[in-house]
Amino acid sequence: MSLLEVDAINTYYGEAHALFDVSMRIEPHEVVALLGRNGAGKTTTLKTMMGVMAPKSGAILFNGLPIGGLPPYKIARLGLQFVPEERRIIGGLTVEENLVLAGLSEAKSWEPQRVYDMFPRLGERRRSRGRELSGGEQQMLAIARALVREPQLILLDEPFEGLAPLIVQDLLGVCRRLAEEGRTIVIVEQNVEAALSLAQRCYILNNGHVVYEGTPAELRGDPDFMHRHLGI
């Protein structure tokens, strides 16, 4: 059984049809990249998985359980965790409070110390407020906040966006480590090279349709297709 199975979902923003019969499956312990141009529906797909948006039709099964249309907090408790593009660190809370908050509803949640061992930088800044952190630190905290819940599936939305190349390298290292630990990750990223270097499989979305499913190697073997759908 796949960890996550998305079966022909259709999602709308009000009247606007954003996802058209999108289907995908995520197996345990794999990293899957979700690629496509701006507005292709990548973030919408993640948001629909997390329950931030409800699909109008179609099914989403997590460990065989239908979760389509459930509120985010119920989906989170089942073991899915979304790391949004805007990071959404709670700016008025300290780093530590952000981590504690994330663990409140999860029985096997991490102690903050475990996060600090993994990200020493966050340990140094444990008393700083979220809004005082740099972009890179915020992104680290956003990922750490997801890990605290020990999720079975992490949905990463553009984790490298707007960050300096050196910091992207750092975060790429973090993601690689998570992948090596056998965590299951879906990553949406404009930085195609970075995403493909992490992923074992990828999907390409175009105008709300899945137009490609395959391995990074297969995709790289078709430069024409990459150019057409990703503009590179």
């Binding site: 985010p72 907090y73 989170a76 949004p84 709670i90 700016g91 409140l104 509803s105 999860e106």
Partner: peptide, 12 residues
């Protein structure tokens, strides 16, 4: 500050 994020973190 951010209701939606709190919800995403598993809190009703």
């Amino acid at each position: 500050e951010d209701q939606l994020m709190v919800n995403i973190l598993g809190i009703n």
